[in-house]
Design a protein around this nucleic acid. Structure first.
Lengths: 139, 139
DNA sequence: GACTAACGTTAGACTCACTAACGTTAGGAG
DNA sequence: CTCCTAACGTTAGTGAGTCTAACGTTAGTC
């Protein structure tokens, strides 16, 4: 089965996933926290529903993750005056610092993961993966 | 965060994982079953400990997965006369058929996943992933 | 004003992965 | 032979990530 690309992909991803997960656990975070903070930092405040669409996190899981982030003071939940169904999620100062911290950790892990590849090969890999992702997201 | 390769990797893998998982669920299987049957078919019978090393599945999880496979008649568990600590896990005829069935399903999913890539690009991707995996397994 | 859709929330299920502990068996050191 | 260590299989429990189903509230539409 070693010739199957999906096997390789899942094995490699499993390894990366473990590395990242360990890195997050060491600072008391998890994947959802990083995804949410990074999305807020990159694309700004949003309602929970919009955040879910941006990050691919289920709305039902967002509730708990945001509770944790809110409890730690990394995000603020405030009702949207323009639409009372919505909560607006905002990144706090501490949240921005946390996002930076977690981002650096991810970058470290990535350096370790991609260590055997040259710069050109890393770009090649990134390009191929992006093609796959764009195709299955847009089409 | 979209520029991080590990992000792309995990997103792509998550998509592939979902596709494969759905395919397996449709026939009442799951990832562990496929991994075990495929390993038995490719490299022959083995003790549970050896199977765990070959597939990367935890010994504690192997027990349950093998119970299911044994209950379905896909593998046989017999004590090793040469070492009474060991169980020898053997693939049955039905198990070989099941392995083939699941393998075909994985191949279908892979075709769908890699659809936007040319043959040369698929090989490129496979080669890069294999490099990563070999590096982190061997070193 | 009734219907439909979106939003946030809660509860529950499942897969995959890991840790801890335990009894049994093999094999080597003394 | 005995003691010690290591490997093996098993059970129980934890946690992350993903998903479904249901419910009450609010917006917007016919």
């Amino acid at each position: 089965m070693d010739h199957l690309a999906s096997w390789l992909l899942s094995q490699t991803a499993a390894y990366a996933h473990r590395l990242v997960g360990d890195g997050f656990a060491a600072v008391g975070a998890r994947g959802y926290h990083y995804r949410l903070l990074a999305s807020l930092e990159a694309d700004g405040a949003a309602s929970q529903a919009a955040l879910g669409r941006r990050t691919g996190i289920h709305l039902s899981d967002l509730v708990g993750a945001l509770n944790e982030l809110e409890g730690a003071g990394f995000v603020a939940r405030s009702p949207d005056p323009a639409d009372r169904r919505r909560n607006v999620i905002t990144l706090t100062g501490a949240g921005a610092a946390r996002a930076k911290e977690l981002g650096e950790r991810v970058a470290e892990v990535q350096d370790e993961l991609l260590e055997p590849l040259s710069e050109a090969e890393r770009e090649q890999l990134t390009r191929l993966l992006r093609r796959l992702l764009d195709h299955h997201r847009g089409g």
